[in-house]
Write a protein that binds this DNA or RNA. Structure first.
Lengths: 160, 160
DNA sequence: ACAAAAAAGTTGACGGATCAACTAAATGGT
DNA sequence: ACCATTTAGTTGATCCGTCAACTTTTTTGT
């Protein structure tokens, strides 16, 4: 049951950093690679891509809804949207029921760039997922769920 | 075999972002939590902690060796070391064989702070690893290995 | 031995992420 | 209906991560 014996044979990376550290490195590499692909294929940033994906998936979504669904920082969403408006990648449409908010939509230009980036992104995603067996994928996702839960519990305990 | 059918039932998060996106969020949360703990327990930053861990593990290590082993950015290592010197957390000792480089060591103050942060960090690490079964841990690490490999292959292919 | 290449470290620039303060609009309890 | 609270979005400050340019020193090939 105790987790201490898992990796006590220290090779290069000490116990204390295994999970955090490995995830951190993978994340950095994944991000850098995605950013590079997006820049090369469509000249857009990773933040912009993520906004596009949310619009594509949910259609006419507001910044607040994006924040709720993704946990992105609302400041950053605001700035990214601002940039995308200036570049003519999206347009906003004021909501009638709520004067504060507006829904986001593709422009033709924005949609074009999004489509331009998609094949490479899709290929990459397929290659990444394809490198794992079905079982590995499944276990990895449940493991990530559990890690997120464990983090929340740590947070609660340390606040008690 | 095809990876497309894995998550084609789109719930909240579309296929294109599953891996990248989940990892990104977990990474961000893990980082934020670690940073908070380190600040509260010892008043040090995550970068400083990581340098400490490397010194602790390898003893009298040079910045270049840290970069090799961890893939940290050498610019950032340089800056972090500079800050730690100014705060008196470490000292450097010039190498005789190489005029360019220097090894890093704890000061008493630095070691004290490191020890001060350790229990909370260790507890957290144990809680994180402990939330997973042995099998999940093992599968997760091999999955991460495979993902890193897949990324490298994508990189090579796109350069061809 | 010497020129060319590689390695160690520093620094500047820039984008991304996080946090906090702020404005304005909507909601809810009484 | 009214005041307090919540929610949407903007903006500024700050830190971290990444990239590239540069200096100095060491290594390597001939």
């Amino acid at each position: 049951m105790s987790a201490d014996q898992v990796t006590d044979t220290e090779f290069d990376i000490p116990l204390q950093q295994m999970v955090t550290f490995r995830l951190s490195r993978i994340h950095a590499k994944l991000n850098a690679q995605a950013a590079r692909i997006l820049k090369e294929t469509a000249g857009i940033s990773l933040s912009q891509w993520r906004i596009f994906v949310m619009i594509e998936t949910h259609g006419k979504i507001t910044p607040a809804q994006i924040v709720k669904r993704t946990d992105f920082d609302k400041g950053q969403v605001s700035r990214t949207v601002k940039g995308m408006l200036k570049e003519g990648l999206i347009v906003v449409e004021g909501s009638e029921s709520d004067q504060r908010s507006h829904t986001l939509e593709f422009t033709d230009k924005g949609y074009g760039l999004f489509q331009q980036a998609r094949p490479a992104m899709r290929t990459r995603q397929t290659a990444l997922l394809g490198s794992l067996t079905a079982n590995e994928r499944q276990v990895m996702f449940t493991a990530m769920d559990k890690l997120e839960l464990a983090m929340e519990q740590i947070e609660e305990e340390s606040r008690a």
